[in-house]
Amino acid sequence: MTMAMAEAQKGFIDVRNMGVTFGANDNKVVAVESVSLNVQPGEFVSLIGPSGCGKSTLLSIVAGFVKPTSGEAKLDGKAITRPGSDRGVVFQQYSLFPWLSVRKNVEFGLKMAGVDQSKRNTTARALLDLAGLLSFENHYPDQLSGGMKQRIGIVRALATSPQVLLMDEPFGALDTQTRVVMQEILTNIWQQFKISVLFITHDIEESIFLSDRIYVMTARPGRIKAEIKVPLPRPRKAEMTDTPEFMNLVQELKGLIREESLAAMAPEIKDRGLSGFGMKVGPKGVGEIF
């Protein structure tokens, strides 16, 4: 436990005045504009916004794949310049190595770090047990379902004991039922590891259920539109999604995002409103689009 608490002191993500521009001159696209955000050690923070708002770009910067045009991203006070095992990343696409068994996949980061075989084995097996997939340790990824692959993706990212976990719509490709189960599994894992999480999603309920704090982004160019605290108690249970507190947060976020998703779509839709197309906008509204 002491180790977990020591870890909890680390993992402070600090993004200041971040701007990202792709292309040059005529083809210039401003993806992200003067974004500042932070993730406190041990905190679960979500980043939500309409598609194309640059939220994945932001995550890529923190992961070290993309260099910002302006501003900077820091982890525990150190500027982020390249990918590293101090930041675990879980991708939207399944990113397990198909040629490695499930256990070897989880061991991969440790192998790169030069950890010896027996220790790797022990760690990987413990993590697979945590993910409920120990009995599949000798299977190949192609033998598993999408939810299983993504659980392995999560524990693989945790194997090197990173300070932060960066998740880019990790459950986006899963069906709704699997998704809900995965969210519960993730909160459990997160509570055990007490590490900082930056979680990208376009699913409002998902972001509320998982997070301590939510950043809402605007349509391109992406800026931070709002920062919302989620005061729901932990541990979170699936039944919580029916409580009035939860519903209120959903409504609040839907209102914020609705404007942005409209802005992200063709301008004429924004001008005329959806009624101009003879569409009926229900209480859930266009928020359902993303």
Binding site: G64, R82, G84, S85, R87, S95, F97, W99, G109, M112
Partner: peptide, 28 residues
């Protein structure tokens, strides 16, 4: 798949390790 290379980089793979453990088996 480019995501495999990015995943390997995140897991701390050096350039040489990337060749040996990802690009070679992936191209096999």
């Amino acid at each position: 798949d480019g995501v495999l290379i990015r995943a390997a980089r995140c897991l701390g793979a050096s350039e040489f390790r990337l060749f040996l453990n990802v690009i070679l088996p992936g191209s096999l």
